[in-house]
């Protein structure tokens, strides 16, 4: 079975007067039907540019400089613009973090949902559009969808607006949904509802989801597989259980150590020193090495490849697993 989506060597750059800024640098990923892939990373790691690249919606001066994005075997990067437009919404849909800025404040909810439906099938009549839109609102568990159809975005709560966005995204039953921080702006109880809703809709429709988030808790609950990104590259990729049970990359370890946990008391959080480097001033060698407690001189010498440590578990660290390869050397260093 071929993968639904496969990305090879994707490189997205932003041309600046000071030179090219590489936001996504050599990313390989694949995704099966019905699968949920979590993409985790902090601001500036390239996770949002990755999702925009898949949609071919990278805003200028950004452009995709290299790589292939195959969707059911078709290279999206080679498609003419009208064919790509037909792909968006119909086959690949996207929802964003901030539902208020993604909805147009001067049109009713109903008009915005039917607009998308009409764009994809101009033959539909007003009555059919209306009943389909109300059905779509009902599917995302919006109470009284007939009334909400007539309302404006400002009349809805944050959770309701995100439901409307999901209803619009799912109106054409896409095979792939890209959700970019879909619950970050929402309260925890609303977040739990939206995540549960996405899970239900996914099971009903069998669509694949790429969930972009900074929250390891969200990933643990919903993703089948996780890719951890740092400074434009994937540094670790594994099935979700393997990532949490056997985290390998020092950056993944740092993220796990940084989050306060309900199930464990810690005197101090294990913060990662320093900050993410700006994409125009990336360090040589491993991009994480200036912040890495395990770093040796070899880490600065060359960039580690993303290699399989066990089937399905890829790590870009020359020292993984750290306790075997590194501890004697690191001990020696701290004793100096």
């Amino acid at each position: 079975m071929t993968a639904l989506l496969s990305i090879e060597g994707l490189r997205t750059i932003f041309r600046q007067h000071t030179g090219d800024v590489v936001a996504v640098d050599g990313v390989d990923l694949s995704l099966d039907r019905g699968e949920t892939l979590g993409v985790v990373g902090e601001s500036g790691c390239g996770k949002s540019v990755l999702s925009l690249s898949i949609m071919r919606l990278v805003p200028p001066p950004g452009r995709i400089a290299a790589g292939r994005i195959r969707f059911e075997g078709t290279d999206l990067l080679g498609l003419p613009a009208p064919a790509m437009r037909a792909m968006r919404g119909n086959r690949i849909a996207m929802i964003f973090q901030e539902p208020m800025t993604s909805l147009n404040p001067v049109f009713t909810v109903g008009r915005q949902i039917t607009e998308a439906m009409r764009a994809h099938d101009p033959s539909l009549g007003a009555r059919t559009l209306r009943s389909r839109a109300i059905a779509a609102l009902g599917r995302v568990r919006i109470p009284a969808p007939e009334r909400r159809f007539e309302e404006y975005p400002h009349q809805l709560s944050g959770g309701m607006r995100q439901r409307v966005m999901i209803a619009m995204a799912l109106a054409c039953q896409p095979d792939l949904l890209i959700a970019d921080e879909p619950t970050t702006a929402l309260d925890v109880t609303v977040q739990a509802e939206i995540l549960a809703l996405l899970g239900e809709l996914q099971r009903e429709a069998g669509m694949a989801i790429i969930l972009i988030t900074h929250d390891l808790g969200v990933v643990a609950e919903v993703a089948d597989r996780v890719a951890v990104m740092y400074a434009g590259r994937i540094v670790e990729e594994a099935p979700t259980a393997a990532l949490f049970d056997d985290p390998q990359h020092p950056y993944t370890l740092g993220l796990l150590g940084s989050i306060p946990r309900l199930d464990q008391a810690r005197a101090r959080l294990l913060a990662i020193e320093g900050a993410v480097p700006p994409p125009f001033a990336l360090p040589a060698g491993c991009r994480f090495h200036p912040r890495c407690v395990f770093a040796t001189s070899a880490c600065a010498a060359r960039e580690p490849p993303l290699a399989a440590l066990s089937p399905g578990h890829l790590v870009a660290c020359i020292h993984a697993p750290v306790e075997q390869s590194l501890v004697p050397a690191a001990r020696a260093r701290t004793d100096e």
Binding site: T189, V190, A196, G217, A220, F244
Partner: peptide, 24 residues
């Protein structure tokens, strides 16, 4: 209890708790 149950926990071996109903 609702707030505590809604926090996504970084442990994939836990069953997600069913979310609370309704909004503020």
């Amino acid at each position: 209890r609702t707030l505590l149950a809604a926090i996504p926990r970084p442990d994939p071996h836990l069953e997600p708790t069913p979310p609370a109903q309704g909004e503020l």
